[in-house]
Design a protein around this nucleic acid. Structure first.
Lengths: 202, 202
DNA sequence: GGCCGTAGGTGTACGGCGTACACGAAACAG
DNA sequence: CTGTTTCGTGTACGCCGTACACCTACGGCC
């Protein structure tokens, strides 16, 4: 076949991610990615159907870092699940501006399928039956996704200093905000994860 | 002051939500909302700074339904938290097409602040100390937000029939998908919630 | 009751977006 | 060397959000 392609899907994804990391999600456009790669805008359409598919490539690039391999088999299941959850969170959190994309296109990512499969395998090995296994996976995914949202689409009301809620109307909340300021997002994530994992034993 | 306004912010939000419910999120545009209200496009800018602020109005309209009032005080704290979580989930789930907006603008919603404050009050009454109270709120919020995502931005891989993952590569996952098909999203949410609430006791 | 100032509503216009389409150019098969 | 097929490009269209200048309807004051 004549005229071999000059780009790979991975290059597209990398370029798009670079644009996002540099200019924010709002800066992502077909034109911007094309410029980043030094090709014409329409060239991209030889590789992807539309912008949405480009976004999916980006998400896969972000997530596949988390699905690398199963965690050490000698650890107890709770620790293994913890490792998997933290890995996924860290992979996504490494590109904060891309978080909304990650959430929107999560379900098309083969990497996340592999991650889920690994989680289910650990649960199966730990003796969870069908039903509770599914619930457990859902809980873990929900926790990771939800926590990412809380951290990157807006802190717990008042995390980043100044502009908390009016303390008078929301006493508990501003108290919580004050406490939260002294703890890193990762630390809070792990604490929450511990709560969840404790709930899973039974 | 001359020339009283002919619209209220609530009318804007309602019109925008109507557009979203009818035409999907992609159908939301300043022009569409203006047409829905029978005014010119630019008239909207007398009420909101920009499109983003309009979206915030929509989100507040969706969420305020969940923050109506504290749950019955005579129930044990776990049930009260469960009620609050379910309420929030149901309010958001009532407008599936608006879910991405809800997630993006969640943090600007006074309604969600009130909801959080109520949760914290319940936790305080239940004897949770500062630190664990914050963690618990985070867990609940993360669970609700994450679950909404899982349900509305894409089912657990393979929820809606046909196009599950290739069964050969992901045996556990396709098994889970088969199981999930027989359970409603709301049911699964409540089961996951129970896991989480169990984890909170300690 | 009439005028005036002000704020509300409108119309036009611009730059940027995603992308359909038709074209020129490059590289392998013979 | 030539033909074929695909890749990459340029142009153009219809949307979008929204800046700006304009007209207009109304409440306050005389």
């Amino acid at each position: 076949m004549p005229r071999p392609r000059s780009l790979t899907p991975t290059q597209l994804a990398t370029a798009a991610l670079a644009v996002i990391d540099r200019d924010g999600l709002a800066g992502l456009s077909m034109r911007a990615v094309a410029k980043e790669l030094g090709v014409s805008t329409m060239a991209l359409y030889r590789y992807v159907e539309d912008r949405e598919q480009l976004e999916e490539l980006v998400v896969e690039l972000v997530i596949c870092a988390a699905a690398a391999e199963p965690p050490p088999a000698e650890l107890p299941w709770r620790e293994r699940l913890g490792i998997l959850a933290v890995r996924l969170r860290d992979a996504v959190a490494a590109h904060p501006s891309a978080v909304p994309l990650t959430l929107t296109h999560r379900h098309t990512s083969p990497g996340l399928l592999r991650w889920s499969e690994t989680v289910l395998a650990v649960l199966a090995e730990a003796g969870f039956e069908d039903g509770r296994r599914t619930v457990a996976l859902r809980c873990l995914l929900a926790h990771v996704i939800g926590a990412i949202q809380l951290d990157h689409l807006a802190p717990l009301p008042g995390r980043d200093a100044g502009t908390g809620p009016p303390a008078a109307d929301f006493p508990h909340l501003s108290r919580a905000a004050r406490h939260t300021r002294n703890v890193s997002a990762g630390q809070e994530f792990r604490e929450g994860l511990a709560v969840l994992l404790r709930g899973l034993e039974a």
